[in-house]
Design a protein around this nucleic acid. Structure first.
Lengths: 319, 319
DNA sequence: TGAGGGCATAACCTGGGTTTATGTGCAGTG
DNA sequence: CACTGCACATAAACCCAGGTTATGCCCTCA
């Protein structure tokens, strides 16, 4: 039997670094401070904006420069400007801070107690990849809104809504669960991806569903949402071959696909960045549709109002 | 006069939070530890993997749970497993850690002294969005390689290569600078984007280049690479209208496009994530090609060898 | 029932980051 | 030409998050 369940890291992964990442990368506070300096053009103003004193900011920036071995800001008696290297570092820092903002938005919703003003129930994929961005936008637009989040599969989401334990739900799937109304807010598809070095990226003829079904892939474990969709879609093409590797997290699958010599099937949402950076390449498959709608749902009849309506507005394709 | 140069943050931006992000998000060390727990299934093993002792790990996870107000791991006498909320948090944490890894890879190259084994010169866009990913991959594949990075425009890259001060260059543009050989490794295009609520996202007829030229946009300041390309492309369509807003960083432009009522033109690489998360929508423009090739370049005749060859291999579309 | 793996608690230590207080350099101004 | 304002640097004292060592409890398994 070929498909062994493996939970560890795949072969070509970065080895555990001798000195952990956190000792080589400035902490979030320092990165935020750097962004503030870039934005405001002065250490003192940046200090005030981040709620610390000017000497603290000065020392923090200095120790960051020492840690990175690069001068980041040019001090002058009239303010501070980024150096060229500083501008580059700031851009990288911004991506870290943005990820941290998404983390914060999600975590805040997750903590939310039952008395939150807006209770959201969402499927895993949506909760993981889309909700944090929406929540950041919601916070910008309606700063007061407290959100709580419950993540589960479609039927769990439906249950919560029908029990009155959630105000708005998000599900991915082909149809609206019974008892709910909904609207399509976007679309997700499973796509076949491979490392740029894989032979499939050089094919002249399109891959067929049959070929895909016959090829051992790197996949999420059986029972995951994406795995179910894939199993169903390929049933008519001879069924899925035993996977080359079964991993328990989407990220592990991506990492394996990047470094191993095998293709994988993943949600488009999960691999957006890898595709634009060309760490992975999409392989078109002839005649295989693995799309599914993303829907906002609510109990039949009760159109969302108040904060739920605000959030819904942020998520709609084109209102 | 419509186009005022503004460097501050645009209107609808998130206000400076009362308590900074860094106090609401666990630090990188804690996030790394959480990932290790997820991967290894035990606090003790995770502690060892991250170079701390078991009690330290225990206390760190506990304080993270206190901070977030959510139970993340389920302790048992036989190990620790993530809770549902923990799995979600771990996914968000992974994105932060990945951004930090990219930061580290870039910073390490930036620090690289002149004696590094591989000296890379790259254009801003490539250095910002693509190189960090490549460097992570290179580190995984050839752990020893020390890389140094110099970022500048195409002519600066060419100069460095010809002066023998860089081993491999990356440029975006329509042609290979004189004296260099090169190979196309990818493609970038400028695309028109707008917030999902913008009327342009609902057009039935495709936007024309003339309409685009006549519309006040949110743009990078004059002199930036993307601005030059856009100016040139729209010259024959009546020239660019005065911008609605001129901002000095790509991220500021993105933020403004998301929250303001005006479209923008940005590199596809810069907005990949916003597009997949549908915070921005691409607006097709009839008959306007704003593509440019991404090329690896080196001095004529001297085909890259050694580490330069390794890096080149990682970046190629399909070898 | 003893051994071992896994987590929690306690007591103590350390260092990075903070604050307050003060000094230096430059620019614009009456 | 001093004076004032602003920006950054330095110094000294403090604080606490996170680390370590030592130990105990709990559960499982041979």
């Amino acid at each position: 039997m070929a498909g062994r369940a493996v939970t560890g890291t795949p072969g070509g992964r970065t080895p555990e670094p001798a000195v952990p990442l956190s000792h080589r990368v400035p902490d979030l506070g320092a990165l935020e401070l750097l962004l503030a300096v870039a934005r405001l053009g002065s250490l003192g103003r940046a200090a005030r904006a981040t709620g610390i004193t000017q000497p603290a900011a000065s020392s923090r920036i200095r120790s960051m420069e020492r840690q990175l071995g690069v001068a980041l800001v040019e001090r002058s008696p009239r303010g501070s400007r980024l150096t060229d290297a500083g501008a580059l570092v700031t851009d990288w820092a911004r991506r870290v801070v943005e990820a941290a903002e998404a983390f914060d938005a999600g975590a805040q919703a997750l903590r939310g107690r039952r008395d939150s003003r807006l209770r959201v129930a969402a499927s895993m994929t949506i909760a993981e990849y889309l909700l944090p961005g929406w929540l950041i936008a919601l916070r910008a637009q309606r700063p007061g809104t407290a959100v709580s989040l419950l993540a589960g599969n479609s039927s769990a989401v439906a249950e919560r809504l029908l029990a009155g334990e959630a105000d708005l739900g998000f599900v991915e799937g082909l149809e609206v669960p019974a008892g709910l109304d909904g609207t399509v807010i976007g679309h997700d598809r499973l796509i076949v991806v491979a490392a740029p070095s894989h032979p499939w990226t050089r094919r002249r003829t399109e891959l067929t569903a049959g070929e895909l079904a016959a090829t051992p892939l790197i996949l999420r474990e059986r029972g995951s949402g994406t795995r179910q969709v894939l199993d169903a879609a390929l049933a008519r093409h001879g069924g899925l071959a035993d996977p080359l590797l079964e991993l328990s997290s989407t990220t592990a699958v991506k990492a394996a696909a990047v470094s191993e010599a095998a293709p994988s099937v993943l949600s488009e949402l999960a691999v957006g960045e890898e595709l634009t950076a060309r760490r992975l390449v999409e392989i078109p498959v002839h005649g295989l549709r693995l799309g599914r709608d993303l829907r906002a749902v609510w109990p039949s009849g009760q159109r969302p109002a108040g904060p739920a309506r605000d959030l819904l507005g942020l998520t709609r394709r084109a209102p």
